[in-house]
Design a protein around this nucleic acid. Structure first.
Lengths: 109, 109
DNA sequence: TCAACTACTCTGTGTTACTAGCTACTAGTA
DNA sequence: TACTAGTAGCTAGTAACACAGAGTAGTTGA
């Protein structure tokens, strides 16, 4: 897969992470793990942390420091109201794109 | 929609254009028009031309100059064998992503 | 003490779509 | 003639984003 998925993730990875957070709050390391479980095996850790910084700066999440039994304290992220609205928009945009692509794929047969 | 679709198009727009070309050869201006018809109203013309240069450089298309009745000659692009293989890969990658996202969307309800 | 794991941070790089122009050719109109 | 609109292609500069790769910090167990 490689390069293609990298480019496709631009713009969608943000929505994916927000969607994960909409189910329940989580911290960076945990999100990375969950992504890997879901098949996104080659997403770099650094990428997730950078993304979290970005969505925090954009005011889409609340952050809480929680001490960990192992390692340094966790930064637990949870979606706030603007975050949920943004996620809604994301699903709308994604729906549009998925529909177009689905149609194009049919035509190509 | 705006910013979200812009980022989402990164990586997918290339596939979209290749998919259009897989149905039948076309030139830049025509591709832009077709994209607009399909609802991608805010894709800039310049974007399409830049993309065409890129896929030509990457050897995914053949190019033929065809005189036009109106305006300067058209550069008609058609998919070649590597292009078709690349498009196949694109659909695989897209399928993977669409499946993941579909699942995430379900979970979020 | 040192390896292994957890958790987070940072810098630089490459790719990509966008903005905002430009050139060039033709046909129709004032 | 001079202009406008439509067709067709091209370019330079910019912003956003995922990645590679490295580093920091804390805990546990050999």
């Amino acid at each position: 897969m490689g390069k293609q998925i990298t480019e496709m993730l631009k713009g969608t990875l943000e929505g994916i992470v927000l969607a994960i957070l909409s189910v329940q709050p989580a911290y960076g390391y945990e999100i990375t793990q969950r992504l890997r479980e879901q098949g996104f095996t080659d997403i770099a850790e650094g990428t997730v942390y950078a993304l979290l910084v970005r969505i925090e700066r954009n005011g889409l999440v609340e952050v809480e420091k929680v001490p960990s039994e192992k390692g340094p304290p966790r930064k637990v992220y949870s979606l706030n109201v603007p975050g949920r609205e943004y996620l809604e928009e994301f699903w709308t945009t994604w729906g549009f794109l998925a529909e177009r692509l689905g149609q194009l794929k049919e035509e190509g047969k």
